[in-house]
């Protein structure tokens, strides 16, 4: 049966000697989906990417990328429909950026005429004829992105793609990923930059010591983790304590002063509490709600509080 998922891992384990790098990891990335792959250094993110690329074989489990097993491709070369950006991408330094990209384009069977457009897209058009040895880390990273995008592959595997990019280029990069998704492509992005990946990924996969401890949308993970929602209430002068007494049950008072209250509650109680606060007008002037971000969700699951 043909699968709708572009990337599929089914109870995949990988051991190097006695050391287990990945333990029964199962996840699927659908078409037009962007999944963020998170985890501490050594959690198994890069190994997972290498398995998807067929650079190394799984000890157990099944892997499918675009419906094919990459392990079968070990030694035979990968399909052209995958774009990969390794962490700390390296190139032949004696060649110019343009020559590097043309070399990879030819290997992929992509028209070399597309190279100049790609170089312009990543902001390297002016440096294209300079040797890669003169490039900064950010410029090398941009060249890496350009080669990953060669031939508009269906699956993008990006390992720390925005390292060394300035904020403007980061934005351009994520726009490009979004465009890729709109064209039906999927992306698996490994990253430590939680705040920037938060709004750009559809789902999040968190690895801890080789185990997938969380996989779902941010809202799902937040709810499953039971992380508190923080509510900041602005009241009239001297009315804070009065408001605190009248709100009632279901929340925790974190901080109070003359005209502000900081409360926390479970995500499920949030609407109820906001309604109650609205009823306390005019003593309550304003309400700000802070749902836990990806940083807190990640901290929760990666620190060992989450389920194994």
């Amino acid at each position: 049966m043909a699968s709708r998922a572009s990337i599929e891992l089914e109870r995949v384990s990988k051991r190097y000697g006695a050391h287990e790098v990945l333990h029964e990891v199962s996840l699927a990335v659908g078409q037009a989906e962007c999944v963020a792959l998170l985890g501490h250094n050594g959690a198994g993110k890069t190994t997972l990417m290498k398995l998807l690329l067929g650079l190394t074989r799984p000890c157990d489990g099944k892997i499918r990328v675009n419906g094919a097993e990459p392990t079968h491709l070990l030694g035979k070369g990968l399909g052209a429909d995958i774009g990969f950006l390794p962490e700390n991408v390296m190139f032949h330094t004696a060649m110019s950026g343009r020559e590097v990209l043309r070399f990879y384009a030819r290997l992929k069977g992509v028209a070399v005429s597309t190279c100049d457009r790609l170089l312009a897209e990543v902001g390297l058009d002016e440096a294209a004829r300079r040797r890669v040895s003169t490039y900064s880390k950010g410029m090398r990273q941009r060249l890496g992105l350009a080669q990953a995008l060669l031939g508009t592959p269906h699956v993008l595997l990006l390992d720390e793609p925005t390292t060394g990019l300035d904020p403007v280029l980061r934005e351009t990069f994520y726009q490009r990923v979004r465009q890729h998704q709109e064209e039906g492509g999927c992306a698996l992005i490994s990253s430590h930059a939680l705040t920037e990946i938060e709004a750009r990924s559809d789902r999040v996969a968190i690895l801890r010591q080789g185990r997938l401890v969380a996989f779902g949308s941010l809202a799902e993970l937040r709810e499953r983790a039971g992380l508190p929602v923080r509510i900041r209430v602005v009241t009239g002068a001297g009315e804070a304590s009065g408001v605190a007494e009248r709100i009632g049950a279901g929340l925790h008072l974190d901080h109070i002063n003359n005209e502000t209250l900081e409360l926390s509650c479970l995500g499920g109680d949030k609407l109820d509490i906001v309604t109650r606060l609205a009823d306390l007008r005019p003593a309550v002037h304003d309400v700000e709600i802070h749902a836990p971000g990806l940083g807190e969700v990640y901290a929760h699951y990666s620190a060992g509080d989450g389920p194994q």
Partner: peptide
Amino acid sequence: ERGTLLLLLTYPVARWQ
């Protein structure tokens, strides 16, 4: 060692090639 092999082997080329 330089790290260029990793990227090369993710391209559609066989290792014997």
